[in-house]
Amino acid sequence: MRIHEQQHGAVTVLKVDGPIVGVDADELKGRLLQAQSDALGRLVLDASGILLIDSKGLETLVDVADEMTKTGKALKLSAANETVRQVLELTGLAALFEHFEDANSAVRSFL
């Protein structure tokens, strides 16, 4: 798993390439929490490169979403593929996130 951090104006976009499984989830959690803290919640997770996500990965996303909810923010997911979307829908976690077709749309939502 590789994590690319990009700045779209004042918004931090974390793009993940590869599956989120096992220990990778911990690394992603740390990066997400750090990014949301630094950017005051202006954070987008570009999920276009996430091919697979396991329970640990889901737990990570839920933890980050909960953490952001405490400050009135939501974790914005962009370009999640069909597999990831189905996993989120089937586990009933889709409502925890804001979904966008692409990262730019997600960035625009901060305007």
């Binding site: 951090e5 700045q7 779209h8 104006g9 976009v13 793009k15 570009d46 990262a103 730019n104």
Partner: peptide
């Protein structure tokens, strides 16, 4: 650059 691959498609960027 790699960091700007995504934002380069942003408007006015």
């Amino acid at each position: 650059s790699e960091e700007e691959l995504a934002p380069v498609f942003g408007r006015f960027y």
